[in-house]
Design a protein around this nucleic acid. Structure first.
Lengths: 146, 146
DNA sequence: GGAGAAAAGTGGGTAATAGTGGTTTTTTGT
DNA sequence: ACAAAAAACCACTATTACCCACTTTTCTCC
């Protein structure tokens, strides 16, 4: 279970230190083996523990081939997916292609969202957070009790 | 059951003393284990006993991934959630990210709201209290008997 | 009502650990 | 075989978390 958001820095080699709290979860869940891919709706990266990725992969593959939006989602998720591991110091090295997709600069934001993580450029994260959710509120949200 | 509001001070390290009355409830309910997160609608923090947080978490995780407003709510609630415990002196240390979200300065206000607590910057709390509730009243409110 | 004691609130110091940067070695491609 | 790039290794710095001591307030008993 991943929660919280963490400001992290990317060093000159493109390495980023995974916060300890997140790292612990990753190690016990999947021995530090992750899959990073592109988010379909927002300019950020999705980070899955390998075990969770393998669970959702079939449902992405099963999408109808004749639907344009479905093909787009498949190309983004499966086509960008890249397996990677924590190094000896608990850091990950995100490939340049994915870095470009999320426009990752030096200052990043890692956010735990339950079973997955999102990796944002810090500025983009802040902007996204301040933007009002102007979509129609779905039924589930209107009745949400917090 | 948490009630009342309490003016508390944050020290130089960002620690804040939980009032005794609240602390007693927290210790018996969840052994002092809390979850702090961002409020979706107001500039303040939500403080849950861990047990209560685990009850509402599934309904947040179940929100539809392709809806923008739903993703925003998930990023606010799950993406900001931080588990924390009372230290030896009954204080909590709220992470800098969350402090920034609620614009917490030195003077804070902790408000008991039944099953949860809200943590406000004192000035924001006062302002919020004086502001008239000019929203359209939902059905549940119109029929409320006090 | 005052004094003493106990509990609560506040502040600071130290030790462990997480984060950061650099160096060396290995591997891959030319 | 040599060079460049990537990966593993190592060492240092900064931060955090835990612990202890002091001050202030409140409650109780005389």
């Amino acid at each position: 279970m991943f929660t919280g958001n963490y400001a992290i820095n990317m060093d000159a080699k493109g390495r980023m230190a995974v916060p300890t709290r997140i790292r612990e979860g990753l190690v016990e869940l999947c021995a530090g083996r992750l899959v990073v891919t592109a988010h379909t709706e927002d300019p950020c990266l999705l980070v899955y523990p390998e075990s969770r990725w393998l669970e959702i992969l079939p449902s992405i593959q099963a999408l109808p081939a004749m639907n344009k939006a479905a093909r787009r989602v498949q190309r983004l998720l499966i086509g960008h997916a890249c397996p990677l591991e924590l190094d000896g110091n608990g850091r990950i090295l995100v490939p340049p292609t994915l870095r470009a997709h999320a426009q990752l600069d030096k200052k990043l934001m890692l956010a735990g969202l339950g079973e997955k993580l999102e990796l944002w450029d810090e500025a983009a994260w802040t902007a996204q957070m301040q933007e009002p959710g102007d979509d129609q509120l779905p039924e589930e949200l209107q009745s949400l009790v917090l």
